[in-house]
Simulated scan of single mutants.
Amino acid sequence: MTVKQKWYIKIVAVVFIAIVGAYYTTKLRSGGRRAAAFISLNYRWGMGDTLQNSYDSKTGEYIFLDQSDRKIRESFKLRTNNVIFLHSKINQEDLLNIPDTIANAGANLKDPKVLRYEFEFVYDDTVKNIIYLTSYDKDPLIAAKASTLQKTVQQVISEAEERFAKR
Rank of each mutant, 00 (worst) to 15 (best):
K27C: 10
L28K: 15
L28T: 13
S30V: 14
S30R: 14
G32F: 13
G32Q: 14
R33W: 15
R34C: 13
A35Y: 15
A36Y: 10
A37F: 05
S40F: 02
L41P: 01
Y43W: 13
R44I: 03
G48W: 00
T50D: 13
T50N: 12
Q52L: 13
N53P: 09
N53D: 15
D56C: 05
D56N: 14
T59L: 13
G60E: 11
G60Y: 07
E61G: 07
Y62G: 06
I63N: 11
I63W: 05
I63L: 12
I63H: 09
I63Q: 11
F64D: 05
F64A: 14
L65W: 13
L65P: 14
Q67C: 05
Q67M: 11
D69L: 12
I72C: 07
S75Y: 14
S75V: 14
K77S: 12
K77W: 10
R79A: 15
N82V: 05
I84A: 09
L86G: 12
S88K: 14
S88P: 00
Q92S: 10
Q92R: 06
E93K: 11
E93S: 13
D94C: 06
L95C: 03
L96P: 02
L96T: 02
L96D: 02
P99A: 03
D100M: 04
D100W: 03
A103K: 01
A103D: 01
N104G: 09
N104S: 10
N104L: 04
N104A: 06
A107I: 01
L109Y: 04
L109A: 08
D111Q: 04
P112W: 00
R116K: 12
R116T: 09
E118M: 08
E118Y: 00
F119A: 01
E120D: 02
V122D: 05
Y123L: 11
Y123V: 05
D124I: 00
D124T: 01
D124Y: 00
T126S: 10
V127R: 12
K128F: 09
Y132L: 02
L133T: 06
T134E: 01
Y136C: 10
D137W: 04
D137L: 08
D137V: 08
D139Y: 09
D139M: 10
D139G: 10
P140R: 12
L141M: 11
I142F: 06
A143R: 09
A144P: 03
K145I: 06
S147M: 06
S147C: 04
S147W: 02
T148K: 09
L149T: 00
Q154V: 08
Q154Y: 08
Q155C: 00
I157S: 00
E159Y: 00
